[in-house]
Design a protein around this nucleic acid. Sequence first.
DNA 1: CCCCGGGCGGGACAAATGTCCCACCCGGTG
DNA 2: CACCGGGTGGGACATTTGTCCCGCCCGGGG
Lengths: 201, 201
Amino acid sequence: MIKVLLAEDQGMMRGALALLLNLEDDIEVVAQVGHGDEVVDTALRTRPDVALLDIEMPGRGGLDSAADLRERLPECAVLILTTFGRPGYLRRAMEAGARGFLVKDGPVEDLADAVRRVLRGERVIDPALAAAALSTGPSPLTDRERDVLATAADGSTISDISARLHLSESTVRNYLSSAIGKTGTRNRIEAARLARHNGWL
Amino acid sequence: MIKVLLAEDQGMMRGALALLLNLEDDIEVVAQVGHGDEVVDTALRTRPDVALLDIEMPGRGGLDSAADLRERLPECAVLILTTFGRPGYLRRAMEAGARGFLVKDGPVEDLADAVRRVLRGERVIDPALAAAALSTGPSPLTDRERDVLATAADGSTISDISARLHLSESTVRNYLSSAIGKTGTRNRIEAARLARHNGWL
DNA sequence: CCCCGGGCGGGACAAATGTCCCACCCGGTG
DNA sequence: CACCGGGTGGGACATTTGTCCCGCCCGGGG
């Protein structure tokens, strides 16, 4: 029996997936969590063979949780399940030691299959997605540029950002300008959108 | 046997929900579509008792499809199922003649229950959501303000917007300024975010 | 008939944004 | 040691954005 931990914040999705996996007679969902902060604790308690992690979760995200699990429970295979096949997400998932990366667009049948395959040690990745990730390349942004861009994304002004990040307004300007330049966009909004689309935030 | 049409673009979600509903012994999913444009045609062909519609779908969205169904197949009850409980969505859903409005956050058990209840003629709406929709009020934006704000949301400059909407730059400026004023925000980014959050776009 | 709101546009102005310089500090690397 | 990239800031400047006027046209309601 394959023991699975399911981490997904959307209740209906979580419940439906759990039900679906439990229908398989070699799979058992031993734990469900709806918040990123509960992943590691629950995993340590329930010792799953596979952790199925959503990326966009409140609290500690799926990618960070994956890295945590890698460290605290290395025998547990991590399978990322996400809405968005962003290149940067895939890259970070691999760096965090995930064994598989599944997008929610695909057919349900893929899911149980992917669980079995990561447990056998296989890597489960959509080839088209892998190609996209490689062709997009890694993020060109430095840490600070990423911070500033992420903070700017909600409509904050320069002075808002400088206050929140404890930087001078000049510095914020410079980082924004440089992020805009590196992303080849025309203003902070386009830059933030592109960075988000590529999974760089 | 309750015949259900399921419209949802995310493959895994659609499959899981269909499977879940089919487990109920008084419910049968007679059709599944992953694109808004197929809703009405499929409904006319399969004559479902209840249409379960996602709002964010490629092609014709769930709200527009709901209105279409109301007209073309009035005996079919519409149940909206959405990720975001935006006040404006709920308002528009009701105006489009939907009989229920469910958010995907809730427990799976709610789903089959909601299907049965809308079929009995009941209205299924989360009371907290209804209160939020009423307290938020209807959109203060005029049609043009909405168009301009929606076009501005992706980082377009004034001249981009004016070109795309066949308006002069002055007019675009004026609409943006007025939308910013009405939303009580400080710039187009905040205005667009607030409008989107409230389901006004 | 008058008024009002909405669509459309012009002009002038202030504020915010984006660009391109400059400078300094620091840690790592050849 | 010299160099380089990253983090941090300043200053000057052009462009864009946002605001507040103004005007015109139209249709609907009192």
